[in-house]
Design a protein around this nucleic acid. Sequence first.
DNA 1: CGAGCAGTTGATTTTTATCAAGTAGCGTGG
DNA 2: CCACGCTACTTGATAAAAATCAACTGCTCG
Lengths: 245, 245
Amino acid sequence: MLEIRTFPSNCFRRSSSIACDTCGARALSVCGSVDDTDLGRLDAMAEHASFAAGSVLIREGDPARHVFNITSGSVRVYKLLADGRRQITGFLFTGDFLGLATGDTYVFSAEAVEPATACRFRKTEYRALIRDCPTLEATLFDRANHELAAAQSQMLLLGRKTALERIATFLLDLPSHDPARTIPPGHVHLPMTRAEIADYLGLTIETVSRVLTRLKTQGVIRLVSLSELRVEQPEVLRALADGVG
Amino acid sequence: MLEIRTFPSNCFRRSSSIACDTCGARALSVCGSVDDTDLGRLDAMAEHASFAAGSVLIREGDPARHVFNITSGSVRVYKLLADGRRQITGFLFTGDFLGLATGDTYVFSAEAVEPATACRFRKTEYRALIRDCPTLEATLFDRANHELAAAQSQMLLLGRKTALERIATFLLDLPSHDPARTIPPGHVHLPMTRAEIADYLGLTIETVSRVLTRLKTQGVIRLVSLSELRVEQPEVLRALADGVG
DNA sequence: CGAGCAGTTGATTTTTATCAAGTAGCGTGG
DNA sequence: CCACGCTACTTGATAAAAATCAACTGCTCG
């Protein structure tokens, strides 16, 4: 049983999905044009797992035996220092792959932000399929390069932007992670806590809170609830994000 | 004429190279086991260019028409903010590829740090070859994932490490970028200026200078010259880098 | 109803940036 | 060969940004 979800052609997160015969959940969600037969083969060798909010998919330092494909929910990827300082390096959503990096052990951790489901493959099997299926490899390669570009932008943010510029950038980037584009423009949903935002932007929760308050006071944004906000002056926010403020 | 350079098997930068018939310079330098025939085909469609120190290979915002392969020297990749703040996202060396990210325009700039040579391909031709040569694509994909892991480590550094921890990490990581491993252990060569180190680590030149002085005073390192230093206490430096200091 | 957690706000400290003088190395030209 | 000037680097004083410490608010869920 095949389900193809179609998004606007300019949308990177366009994906083909197939539903799992055993559990019923969507089993695979791959960006780009991947052959249905290949998707099926990949799906056949996958384990399908559900993760409660906060549960661990990958622990840094563990033997890297599996590759994951997120089929629903969202996942945070992060690294820790010995004393507990955390840097969240990214959030993953439906369709994203996890654990592709080569090496014996994982070099990052990953946890479900909200309840999530994922397919899990043995790395050896995954490698065999990758070799047989050039389309899939091309798609994944393409995506890795996208992620690399995103990582560079994040390095610019972490290394050179002020707290205000970081928050502004974050608020503008967030909606683009919404896979279904269901949220009306100008409306931003914050599925993560202040602590997660802080650990993603290299700030403290207090600074995040203060900057949001400042933006609210200046009328640039309006806080509908703790996790919902509306951008009232997008052009001002854009200027702030680019350091032109 | 084929030249294979062999490095220890645990070395990621192991590469196959072929020399250019016309200019004599090494034309292609690719990590991993890539078929010689494929290398030859790739080389045949390349332009071979030399770059003086400081000259621009890629300017952010320009149409992304080419892919580069560095064949000698070193290159800095960076992003700028409107007011001139710069974040260097990485240094590239012999064998590294540049400009693989999809999209109409380059999303970063690249300049030669020291005199460098590179092969340049039209993206369209490059894409065609990539499709024909699975080994090359696998190699590039593998490397992209390595870079992604490196980018995550750099995000941890930029977002959560102190100035001292950043410098310590930098000094420990630098030798691994030496493709030929010619430098004796404990000896670190700094081919870049303090300004470049600062822009790579998200600091100012003054802070870089002060931290180096501090490490020198404490006897952890010894400055042989401005661009040469010796690590006297590697285990102390490692502890500092990991935030265990 | 109240405990507990997430978030906000305020006071203070710390870190690093900024501003401002130097000093050292190095290539050029007298 | 040495003086000059340039640039990179270092060092010091001060300022700014964000972290830390601390108190308080408000919400959610037993």
